[in-house]
Structure formats: C-alpha cells, structure tokens
Computed example of a mutant assay.
Amino acid sequence: METLCLIPARYASSRYPGKPLVPLEQPGGGTKSLIEMTWETAMAVPGLTRVMVATDDDRIAGAARGFGAEVVMTPAACRNGTERCAAALEVLDARPDIVVNLQGDAPLTPPWFVTDTVAALRADPGAAMATPVLAMEEATLAAFRADRAAGRVGGTTAVIGRGGRALYFSKEVLPYGAAPGAAFHHVGLYAYRPHGLAAYMAAPPCDIEDREGLEQLRFLHEGLGVACATVEARGRTFWELNNPEDVPRIEDALRRNAMIKEKDV
C-alpha cells in the first residue's frame, strides 16, 4: 500500500510564532531546527512511500529544502494540520492509500509510533483515521497538571472506549482524577484514509473543535471513526513542542533518549 507522510508546518503559530524553525540543542553538540528533527524522524520510519513538508511559508520551505526535504506549498488559509494535509493532497499527483500526518512539533516521535498507527488503521476498515495514544507515567502526568495549573495549554489527553475507538480528546487532563497508567497522552500524529480526509473537509468546523483547538474532534463530531493505537515508549520520553517552556523539556529528553540508544547498542 502506498503511504504518503506529510509534515504540516506553519510559521504563524498563535502560541509560538516561528516554532518550526526554533533551534534545539543536540546531544552530540550543535543545533537543529524543530522541522529538520521532525523530518529526520519521518525518514527513519520504514514503509513510507514519500515524505514531504507541507507549508505556506517561504522561510520554512527554504529551510526544509536546505536540509534535503521535499516541499509542497499549501494555502495560508489552512486552519490546522489536517486541512493542510488535505490541501497538499489536492495539488499532488500522488493517490496514496494512506496519508500520515506527522505534525511538525513532535521530533521525539519514535518510528514505531507511526508504523503502529498505520497498522491500527489497516486493522479497522470502518475507521476514517487512526492516531496513537500513550499511557502516561507519573512524571508526564505531573507535567500535564503543572501546565494546566500555570494556565498553559500543553499536551492533549485521550479518552478511549471499547474496541480502541476514541471517545474524546481534550487539552484538559481527562479523565478527572486519573492515576498514572489510566490517563492517555495523545500523540500529535494521524493516519487517514483519503475518503476520511474528504469527509472531514466537507464538514464545517464544530464547536468542540474550536473550543479545544483540536482538529481531530471534527471527525468525532461527524461520526467518523477514530481508531486509537496504544503505543509503548520503550523507555523513551515523548513530548511535543507547544510553548517556549517546552524547549528545555525536549532538549533534556533528547539527551536521555540518546543515552537509551547507546545502551541498546
């Protein structure tokens, strides 16, 4: 099956303008931009037919081409990464079986998160989309709660029903009072069937999508099935770059993940 991976990236983020080009210190020295690290993550995933950065910004496009990425330009009017993926698909000659959306703020995504998500979509013929979730350990759950206590909009949680289908996603820590292992961190990654993307684009934005700022809620609002792949961190730390305060968290995670890789070798 042909699987196209798109990395949507925009410069004008309301929470963190210029985020894709933010430099991150590397464990071995030097820096790399957020978008370059995310592209390297995608390139390490087996089974992807093609990897492209989808953007509306010439600065991001120039940086991406500079480190060797293929780029597709999309309209500035795209409201989120899913709309940007749909717009990219319209201008490309490719007609993939599955479209992967690896959002440009998730450089810590392990390759198996992507392969497990694609596998979950293939295993659920009635789902329009699949997305990974990660059971939170104590430290991650504490970080989520610290963000909310400080009034920061940080990571996203998922509530899952029987059969592994999503019930809801929220920027709040749900379910209320959940202990470590019983709350799920939603990973910024999606795999769509093309007809699911088309159905999403045919529907207007809904109230819960706008309130939470979460594009995947339009799928649930329209009754489109969302399969959740419960993935394992295998000792790795996962975190998205949502706010400037996340930069040291991610740089620390890069160092710890590098040590885990060295031990594996």
Rank of each mutant, 00 (worst) to 15 (best):
W239S: 02
A146H: 14
E240M: 12
Q216K: 10
H186L: 13
R145H: 05
A69K: 04
E209C: 07
M43F: 00
V118G: 03
V231L: 00
P194M: 10
A143I: 08
V153E: 00
Y168F: 12
Q103R: 14
A42M: 06
A183T: 04
V133C: 02
M201V: 13
F113M: 02
Q26S: 13
A227V: 08
E232Y: 05
L121C: 09
A130E: 15
M73S: 11
P180V: 06
L241I: 13
H195M: 06
G196Y: 10
A233R: 14
D246Y: 04
T237W: 03
G28D: 12
G155V: 05
G68C: 09
A233S: 14
A183S: 14
A106C: 06
V53D: 00
E240P: 12
K171H: 15
A227H: 09
D56F: 04
G28I: 05
K263T: 11
A63M: 14
A54T: 01
V265D: 04
R84H: 02
P205I: 07
T3L: 02
G161T: 11
E36Q: 15
F238C: 01
L167M: 08
A135Q: 05
E2I: 04
D246F: 09
F67W: 12
V247C: 09
Y11K: 06
R255I: 09
A64Q: 12
D207M: 12
L6N: 03
P175E: 08
L141F: 07
T55C: 01
S170V: 07
L214C: 11
C206A: 11
A130C: 13
G126D: 14
D124Q: 15
A69H: 05
L21S: 05
T82Q: 08
L92R: 08
R162E: 15
L92P: 01
L141M: 12
E25T: 14
V22K: 03
G154W: 09
E90F: 01
V153A: 01
V72P: 00
R211C: 10
T38E: 05
A54C: 03
M1D: 14
A64D: 03
M136F: 13
M136C: 15
H185T: 02
G47T: 08
T74N: 02
N80I: 01
T31G: 01
V99Q: 06
T38K: 00
V45T: 08
V100N: 06
T230R: 00
Q216I: 15
E245Q: 15
M201F: 05
T237Q: 02
F144I: 03
R59Q: 13
A106G: 05
P27H: 06
Y16A: 07
G164H: 02
D57F: 00
F184M: 04
G66H: 10
D116E: 13
V91N: 04
P20D: 11
V51H: 00
